[in-house]
Nucleic acid binder design. Structure first.
Lengths: 343, 343
DNA sequence: CTGAAAGCGCTTACAG
DNA sequence: CTGAAAGCGCTTACAG
């Protein structure tokens, strides 16, 4: 037989005070004598009372324009991807550290983002983080109208009023090209998402531009979907032809590892002896000793810390103007580029 | 200037009906004329009205003993681990498919589980899933008293009244031993978590027991913490000595891959020529072509589907008795056991 | 089928 | 500093 939870009213009776006093004892700035608070807190502790966050959320709607829930909505695609999983882990940690709860919604495609956001908004989330996806113009307006700050992680802010944190994709692409050119390569292939994929587009532009400065064009371009298998398939296409690239820049580590494994297993190729390879992200398996993938690192701890700071500041003070930040990627030289290793 | 959200009252006014009618239009079994419902829904749609889930949750507390929120709390350790990330991805998918929201809390240690649960309970979660951890006896009682069903994933149900889903660890250990024995190995090492780690304990017991039946004892036992690096360190200890094992059973794929990479990189050992290796879990990178790790697969899709079914049934009907299920692991023969490959 | 009203558990002006 | 009371946006017996 489940029993009803203990409410502030029960505690009040037990402590011989009013229900308002109990409420004040639990609100940080509440005007209440320290002695009374101590007493109430101790009784509440004995009774196992915990304030009802849902009820609290309801009552904030009375005096506040916006009902606060203490929850942040997080919308994520491809949660199984190690890069995203890691990102979520950090967001979760940072959000919790600041006292926010995370309401997680995973979607398969960009199209589902609006629906996800609608669902989350029914729970009166105080802010929303969208990972590697964007909102419709309409939902951006709705969020603005309701005063819900939006943080786009890994995407351009599509709309003024929206915050964002992302890596310098263009420069990352340039760096990759730079390294490969410096190593003396000339048949340089590119593997990324579709040509209009937002993550790929700037990395590819920076890459192509830098090659162009040296009078080169990409040797070939292959498309994947950021999975290991798609990297492997790209390698299959790349190395099955007579003319092989002497190096590959791949817009994601997961795909780059697909290429590396395929090269070794399907073609008995050695890296960097037979070709050089650069990835992007610096996921943890890039550093595994039999991989040692040279890559462009995303400083995700700092990026996520910044994203959470920007968002939480705006949840506390909705008047703050939107803010967008970009972080530079860092070249991590390991062993997959010819002649360019560590030390 | 953020503006207040639209409430059922606004819709009622616009539609020329009572607020109760609007509420009924949005509740599945509501006693309302189909014509009225259509009309209300259409007006609500135009106005962009969405029922307030928080307010709904409040009012369920009036007639129900337990306040319902529509949210399931999920407590997870080591979210960055690919095995857990994948698990969360599936839970998220399955929970959403049934119309539940997921309130995610990540913790670093077993000790934080109680605090996490307390936080989640303030949000009146309708059920809780605890991944690879357990609750204190006290919290188990509190959940039972409040009628909150608990699902322990990957752990023994510590207490009657608690549901669980897990893999047959003991049998998994036996299978691993069986395979290694069949391959003719005799210096068989074991690498797992600490000797009292719940995940390890049964796998090790089954493993040791099966070796015993053939008159063997584990050649050595090394301890890790389920990270890649700890696997690598275990390999360092294992292969630095004069006497090397001819095979290793490792209680997790992530650690097994640490061993594999270390063997190749630090010791120039070939697998399975120099030693055989079996992992546990079958994470996606176990199947990468340059790994091809033989392992015991956890059928996580089915396991998570079952866990969600068990939990949601009990959230809908709290009278149902607790249920615990175990799934057998499946041997996935790839290339890391001598003489025992696919085909 | 429909509406008026009570009430869920809080927070917070308001009055003292 | 303290208490009585209103109200947040719903759901649902209750009466018609």
């Amino acid at each position: 037989m489940p029993k009803r939870s203990i409410t502030s009213y029960h505690v009040a009776t037990a402590a011989g005070v009013s229900q308002s006093a109990v409420s004040r004892a639990f609100s940080p700035g509440g005007s209440i004598a320290e002695k009374t608070r101590k007493h109430i807190l101790s009784i509440a502790g004995e009774m196992g009372y915990q304030p009802n966050a849902i009820a609290r959320s309801m009552s904030t709607a009375r005096t506040d324009v916006r009902q606060k829930s203490g929850m942040v909505g997080v919308i994520v695609t491809r949660l199984q991807d190690p890069f995203f999983a890691n990102t979520i882990a950090h967001f979760s940690r940072d959000l919790q550290a600041k006292g926010w709860q995370m309401l997680l919604f995973s979607v398969d495609t960009q199209n589902e983002v609006d629906d996800a956001l609608n669902s989350l908004m029914q729970f009166k989330i105080d802010g929303v983080i969208v990972l590697s996806a964007i909102l419709s113009e309409h939902m951006a307006q709705v969020c603005k109208a309701q005063g819900i700050p939006v943080m786009l992680y890994n995407r351009d802010p599509q709309d003024e009023g929206i915050c964002s944190v992302q890596i310098e994709n263009f420069e990352g692409g340039q760096i990759a090209a730079e390294v490969l050119l410096e190593a003396g390569h000339e048949q340089i292939a590119f593997v990324g998402g579709g040509p209009s994929d937002p993550t790929t587009i700037e990395r590819e532009r920076g890459f192509v531009e830098r090659l162009g400065e040296s009078g080169l064009k990409p040797f070939r371009r292959e498309t994947g979907d950021y999975t290991f298998d798609s990297g492997r398939e790209a390698a299959l296409r790349l190395f099955s032809r007579r003319e092989r690239p002497d190096s590959v820049f791949c817009a994601s580590d997961v795909m780059a590892l697909g290429i590396l494994h395929s090269a070794r297993h399907d073609f008995s190729l050695e890296i960097p002896e037979d070709f050089s390879l650069i990835g992007f992200d610096d996921i943890s398996s890039a550093a595994w000793p039999d991989h040692l993938l040279t890559t462009i690192r995303q400083p995700i701890r700092r990026m996520i810390g910044e994203a959470v700071d920007i968002l939480t500041e705006r949840m506390d003070d909705p008047e703050l103007p939107p803010k967008s930040t970009r972080f530079p990627g860092a070249l991590i030289l390991r062993n997959t580029v010819r002649g360019m290793g560590p030390k």
